[in-house]
Write a protein that binds this DNA or RNA. Structure first.
Lengths: 105, 105
DNA sequence: TCCTTGTCTCGATATCTGTCGAATCAGTCT
DNA sequence: AGACTGATTCGACAGATATCGAGACAAGGA
């Protein structure tokens, strides 16, 4: 029995409008199939070069950058440039905020 | 240390395009502040009448219905009509699919 | 049967989003 | 410095989305 199910008994209190406004963009960032798969790819390794992400999708490099930016702004990933290449990695804190909510509501 | 963090070492394999296509709409459903708060309100009780949800938002009843429909179609909530009123409740399975992903990637 | 109340559906509309391609920026190599 | 490659930004546009308000539907009460 997961915490989610435990919570489906009378359970905890609903989140505030402010918390909703803060957390919704994070869910939204994962609410696109391309970004969800990107995030999953990045999370499956210590870090991942954009040049490894791009060929996994049938999309222009402009579009790839756009999606990565949304993941970044949602606090889900970090990036670091080393030379010509840019490497993305997962930000555990971003995922934790979602996980915490799902395990409590 | 959460499973998420554990996973941020070399960790599990990325999800498939099909899984991404299946799960993204669920994240997307929670990716709107209004719906996230609605879902949270519904989850915080065994069930909740639409007539209790509506006044919590400064939105028309048409818009409220629209958002509830999206939560329903994402498999996150169930509804049942009793007399004039419609009661919404959380579907644990919907939340579990998200939770499982977050704890593994 | 009609009226009222709660909920949903539909049509219209303004805004947001995903995508491309071109231009730009950042680094490396010659 | 100039050329090349990887990545981001920008401008444009088609399609999706959130919202409203009006109408339809459902159930109960006068």
């Amino acid at each position: 029995m997961t915490a989610v199910e435990t919570a489906c008994a009378p359970s905890g209190s609903p989140i505030s409008g402010e918390d909703a406004a803060r957390l919704a963009p994070v869910f939204k960032a994962l609410g696109d199939p391309v970004r969800l798969r990107m995030a999953s790819m990045i999370a499956s390794r210590p870090e991942l070069c954009v040049c490894e992400i791009t060929p996994a999708f049938d999309l222009s490099s402009g579009t790839i950058s756009h999606h990565l930016k949304i993941l970044r702004e949602a606090g889900l990933v970090d990036c670091e440039r080393r030379g010509t290449f840019v490497y993305y990695s997962i930000r555990p804190a971003g995922l934790r905020s979602l996980s915490a909510l799902l395990d409590l509501d």
